[in-house]
Amino acid sequence: MTKVSIQSVTESFDAEGRLVKERMKQAEKIGLFHASSAKINIANDALIEGLLDQGTLAMIYGQSNAGKSFVALDIAAHLSSGKKWLGREVKRSNVLFVALEGRRGLENRLVGLSQANKLYPNSGLICRSTRLNLFEGSADAQDLIDQANWVFDESPYGRAIFIDTMAMAAVGASENDGRDMGIVLEKLRWIKEETDAMIMLVHHVGKDASKGARGHSSIRATLDTELELMTQGGNRYLKVTKQREYEKGGKIPFSLETISLLDTGMTRVTTKIVQPADTTKLSANDAIVSLLKEAAMPSDKLYEAFKAVRNWSNAKSQFNQALTTLKEKSVITEDEGLLKLT
């Protein structure tokens, strides 16, 4: 057997180590890096705890008139003040909110947020309501970059841009055409890189709600975070349907409260504000009825939806008891495996 001294082994390792270090230096010179040089990297600053990061592309989507714009503006207002949003920690941020569906509605919502003590005079929320087209040419995208960087102004705060809606920012493009959407998505990538902001898009659900947001699959593939606004059992939720860095599948419950802004008898102006959901008072019977108002469904699917409404004690027992009671009172019936209201 050949004897190998400890010294020779040490020298061999030293020589190999020097070679690796030299290779690492060479790799960096040509835009590469050695795997062994990897370290823990926090790529983006969290803007909302466990949900939204700076430097990412996010989307809220849902049915028309479901409250998407109210939710997006509520998030923007909380970012601008640094106040907790539905129980989650928030990093104070400078925010540019691009409202492309009318200034009057936007201003009413802003007044409502102020009345609800969610928006403050010293907040970092700046709004734009002029047209924006991210499909034709590059002038509008450059204009948005310039405006956003003016808003952010080298501040230590977070950075966020909201675009409400994606459809209005892509007039002339076919949402189902990969080439058209590629142009729009490339502009969004450019804006994100030039501003280092979180960009939140407000979008619509497709004709088949089960298939998610409207448009080409490349849209969803590009997103870092996707939030679906949905109603269930009479309650509203944001369901986390995609997350690149955090866990997906969670639901964030909330409610929309109508408040009066002006009432002179002849003129009445109202708006809605986002509030934490109070599901604790909803009975099992009412929950089942509310769910079946939305759609008939088999018992197993109804039970899964029932569990998501609130934190029940003994969910299965309460569900079965309520189901039996509602059947006995002829409030619901079962037809070909589907439970529905009579």
Rank of each mutant, 00 (worst) to 15 (best):
A58E: 06
A116L: 11
L326W: 00
S36W: 10
K187Y: 12
S218W: 00
G55S: 03
V240L: 11
L238Y: 00
G55D: 10
L323V: 03
N235H: 09
L19N: 15
Q115Y: 09
V331T: 13
Q26A: 15
R23T: 09
A295M: 07
A209L: 05
A15S: 15
K327Q: 10
E22T: 10
T225C: 06
G182R: 02
T222F: 08
I288K: 01
L302M: 07
N320M: 03
R310F: 00
G82K: 09
K192C: 07
L52F: 13
A209Q: 14
V4P: 01
E226I: 05
L188R: 02
Q232A: 11
L106K: 01
N149T: 07
T130H: 14
G82N: 02
L106W: 05
G249M: 03
T325K: 15
D153C: 07
L134P: 02
L201K: 03
S37V: 10
S8K: 14
V205K: 09
S80I: 08
L238G: 00
E11I: 07
A277V: 00
K207V: 04
I259E: 05
G178T: 14
G206N: 11
I42W: 12
T56E: 14
L96Y: 01
R18V: 06
K84W: 02
A308C: 09
F152P: 05
I332V: 08
E194Q: 15
R214D: 02
A43D: 09
F33I: 06
L113Y: 00
K192E: 12
S93W: 02
